Amino acid sequence: MNTYAATINATEYPPHLKHKIIFETFEQLPPNEAMLLINDHDPVPLRFQFQSTHPDGFTWEYIEQGPSVFQIKISKL
C-alpha cells in the first residue's frame, strides 16, 4: 500500500483555491515524497501547469483514472 505525505481531495475546495492549495502542498513536500490528489475529473490543465513551473521536478502517476474519480500520485523529485 502506498503512503503519502499529504492527500488533497480537490472536490472539497472552491475552484479559485484548488490549484493554489495543490501547489502550496507540493512545495512543502520534502524531495522524494509524494502527495495524493483526488479529483472528480482528469486534471490535465494542472499537469501542464506542473510541467511549466516544475520541469523535471515531479512525477505524475495515475492511480485511478475515472470515470468519476481520478487519483494521481504526484512525487517531488
Rank of each mutant, 00 (worst) to 15 (best):
T3N: 14
T3D: 15
A5I: 06
A5C: 13
A6D: 15
I8L: 14
A10L: 01
A10F: 04
T11C: 10
E12N: 14
E12W: 01
Y13R: 07
Y13V: 03
P14W: 02
P15N: 09
P15A: 14
L17N: 03
K18N: 04
H19P: 12
K20T: 04
I21F: 00
I21V: 11
I21N: 01
I22R: 02
I22W: 10
F23P: 02
F23W: 01
T25D: 09
E27W: 00
E27N: 08
Q28H: 03
Q28E: 05
Q28F: 02
L29F: 02
P30L: 14
P31I: 14
N32H: 02
N32C: 06
E33T: 12
E33F: 01
M35V: 13
L36C: 14
L37V: 05
L37R: 08
I38E: 06
I38Q: 13
N39K: 11
D40S: 13
D40K: 02
H41N: 04
P43A: 13
V44T: 09
V44Y: 04
V44H: 03
V44D: 01
P45T: 05
P45V: 05
F48V: 03
Q49E: 15
Q49W: 12
F50G: 10
F50D: 06
S52T: 09
T53N: 04
H54R: 09
F58R: 12
T59L: 15
E61V: 15
E61S: 15
I63S: 06
E64G: 00
Q65N: 12
G66W: 14
P67Y: 12
S68W: 12
V69H: 08
Q71I: 05
I72R: 07
I74Q: 07
S75I: 05
S75F: 15
K76E: 09
K76P: 08
K76Q: 09
L77D: 12
L77A: 12
